[in-house]
């Protein structure tokens, strides 16, 4: 098949993944690797590289808006990057090692399991917009991990502080590891740390998670790029498509964000995950 046609298909598929992922609140990157590997027979590590570049592009686009609107907590974001970045470096290294050893089935099964475990995690976020009774730990007080933002819906300034920083760092390391291994944003794990452990208001949590996803993706992408596992003819149309799709999903059609879209996306993710596991175990 001509490369031009394949590049166009990559672009269109990435638009769909970015659009659906954005509406589902999970990001399109999470299904890009299985689509590229299963649908287009792209090498697993090259697909991870393309996905990492697309996650980088979409998080940079959204991150710039959140930072501009002062919704991102710069201190908390940069504090947690101390855990996500080493995780991503180790994750990318593991993937390259496993690929060099020819252990692709391990990568297939692991990604399948990660995708399946993301599904129940995506239902975790059902709590109040602004948590109350937050008791910041000593580290949060020392580093000044907190602030305030203006909530347009509530019509007031909302103060907040980070609660338990130690478990948040642990979860963030895991999020970085998974992000580095598979070129995904690991948004569910990040939400677990920011909402669950740090108990940040939802808007700050979303914005700060996006802020960190960019640096985490850059850590993994930098390793893959320097190790020769990036092909721009694959990565560029995928990154452009995902960015267009996610921007369309988040800005043009916000009214479509509902549970039906979310369930469609989760079913698609589950099918891809099962297919990956079946391939890894030699059943497909």
């Amino acid at each position: 098949m001509d490369l031009l046609l394949i590049a166009l298909l990559f672009f269109l598929v990435a638009i769909g993944a970015g659009f659906l992922g954005s509406l589902a609140g999970l990001g399109g990157g999470v299904i890009l690797v299985p689509i590229l590997v299963i649908g287009f027979h792209v090498d697993f590590v090259l697909a991870v590289g393309a996905s990492a570049i697309s996650v980088l592009a979409t998080s940079t686009a959204a991150g710039a808006t959140y930072v501009h609107d002062h919704l991102t907590d710069l201190r908390i974001g940069m504090f947690l990057e101390i855990a996500t970045v080493p995780g991503a470096l180790i994750g990318a290294t593991i993937t390259i090692y496993l690929a060099k050893l020819g252990l692709y089935p391990v990568l297939f099964v692991t990604l399948g399991v990660v995708l399946l475990s993301t599904i129940p995690g995506s239902f975790l976020r059902h709590r109040s917009e602004v948590p109350e009774g937050v008791v910041p730990d000593r580290r949060a007080r020392t580093l000044g991990l907190g602030g305030s933002y203006h909530d347009r819906n509530l019509g007031r300034e909302v103060p907040y502080m980070a609660a338990s920083t130690r478990p948040a760092l642990g979860v963030m390391f895991g999020a970085g590891l998974v992000a580095g291994m598979f070129g995904i944003g690991s948004g569910v794990l990040k939400v677990l740390a920011l909402d669950g452990a740090l108990r940040l208001p939802m808007k700050v949590s979303t914005a700060t998670s996006n802020f960190m996803i960019g640096v985490t993706a850059a850590a993994g992408a930098g390793v893959l790029l320097a190790a020769g596992y990036m092909n721009p003819v694959i990565a560029a149309p995928v990154a452009l498509g995902t960015t267009v799709g996610s921007l369309a999903g988040s800005r043009i059609l916000p009214g479509l964000r509902n549970e039906v879209v979310r369930y469609v996306f989760l079913v698609l993710m589950a099918v891809l995950a099962v297919e990956l596991i079946a391939r890894g175990l030699g059943y497909a």
């Binding site: 710069l74 201190r75 109350e132 009774g133 937050v134 008791v135 910041p136 000044g144 991990l145 907190g146 602030g147 305030s148 103060p159 907040y160 502080m161």
Partner: peptide, 11 residues
């Protein structure tokens, strides 16, 4: 009700 008394200096 927020559980803390003062906020850090913003950047």
């Amino acid at each position: 009700e927020y559980g803390f008394d003062r906020l850090p200096e913003p950047l």
